[in-house]
């Protein structure tokens, strides 16, 4: 009994999603909701991954193309494309992904460190790996995905 309890305590929940054909997952606590794609308003001088801003019940939130952000090229238009609304450090943004699949629970020991963290093409956004059945899910660090604070702001 005691064992079960302690195992439960170290369980983390993630939402698995697909971007650029690859499997990723995001800590469920950072996710506010999942919405279908709606046209966005373009922002001047933004990095290519920032698609624009969207009206989320009166709030203006930026939408980031996750695939582009990870250096995998722009997400092609697709019927299953959805926007995952996430909030980290008091900032809210939407991530455009190809699909959202499921909620998974894993114990913290099942999250392996990312051995390729030094590889340039995929920098610090991936903070861990989860082996799920026959595939590998990359654990995303959302904080690193926020649009960079613009220098011009200061």
């Amino acid at each position: 009994m005691t064992e079960t309890t302690s195992a439960k305590e170290s369980l983390s929940e993630f939402v698995s999603l697909t971007a650029g054909g690859q499997g990723f997952c995001v800590d469920i606590h950072t996710i506010r909701e999942i919405r279908s794609w709606t046209p966005v308003t373009m922002l001047p001088f933004s990095e290519p991954a920032v698609l624009g801003v969207m009206n989320l019940r009166g709030a203006v939130i930026p939408i980031v193309d996750l695939r582009e952000r990870l250096g995998l090229g722009p997400t092609p238009e697709g019927r299953r494309n959805v926007i995952v609304i996430v909030t980290v450090s008091n900032r809210t943004m939407g991530l455009l992904v190809e699909a959202v699949s499921e909620i998974i629970s894993v114990s913290s020991d099942a999250i392996l460190p990312n051995p390729t963290q030094s590889v340039e093409t995929q920098p610090a956004h991936i903070v861990g790996l989860i082996s799920q059945e026959d595939r590998m899910l990359r654990v995303l660090d959302i904080t690193g995905l926020l649009p960079a604070d613009r220098e011009d702001a200061a």
Binding site: T41, V50, V53, V60, R91, R150
Partner: peptide
Amino acid sequence: IKSLEGNYGAIPGISAATILGDGQIAL
């Protein structure tokens, strides 16, 4: 007026955003 800076940041030449009648955002 809806601030852009909370969730995004400042943009040169743009002071803020607003939401128009059709729900679209205008800068």
